[in-house]
Amino acid sequence: MSNSRFVIDGKDIPFRPGQTIMDAAMAAGVYIPHLCHNPDYASTGNCRLCLVKLNGRYVSACTQPAIADSQVDNQIDEINQQRKTLLQMLFVEGNHQCPGCEKSGRCQLQAVAYYVGMLSPYFTHFYPRRELDASHPEMVLDFNRCILCGLCVRASHSADKKNIFAISGRGMDSRLVINSTSGKLGDSNFSAHDAAASVCPVGVFLPKHKGYEVPIGQRLYDREPIAQVGDVAHPNHQRDKK
């Protein structure tokens, strides 16, 4: 065991060389809000929600290696406000009509927004028009909720070895695309048992024939905040570690 340590919001956190701030914090049971991070896959740092201050400088906790004896600010007003603004921008950029979404109640975007105290999206909504892909017998893809976190891309590539998904285009034109001749999921070799099917932090991947299976009040994030419950892909992940 290494004796390397750093401090998050006054709490001493041990780490092994090579661990990121996020890895070490999760192992120590300290919650840092995140969407595109999943410990099973390489971090990309693209959602920016795990923004923290390392010795006074902004870094993304999921990509920044921990540094011995450093000071990390996580739960401070300034960062909380910035996380809230990031979330508000994610909400207005897509079509996040929670009352009409099957993922509602076990959606990480929603849960993180509850956690930071977001009451409204504040900005002007884009209301983009995005077509559904219902071509696959087991899964509907609702691109209206896609936040371009790239987790399905990474899972399909590294766990499933299928490379079914990619982010195409740049800037405002970025979108999730399917690697099949028609561009439809039904014409790819996707299976509902793929790792890529269960990593989505929002409501893009919706299994067919299930609908609103769990009653309101019993869903993943209905009773306790995400800091206690853990991620959609790893419920109780943080608690199990310690």
């Binding site: 909400f91 996040h96 009509q97 929670c98 009352p99 909504h125 209301y127 983009p128 028009r129 995005r130």
Partner: peptide
């Protein structure tokens, strides 16, 4: 006071905004 999803983000009626 804005109360409920529709007052806050248009809600279900705003799903017509795609058309």
């Amino acid at each position: 006071v804005a109360i409920g999803a529709c007052a806050i983000n248009g809600g279900i009626p705003a799903m017509r905004n795609h058309f």
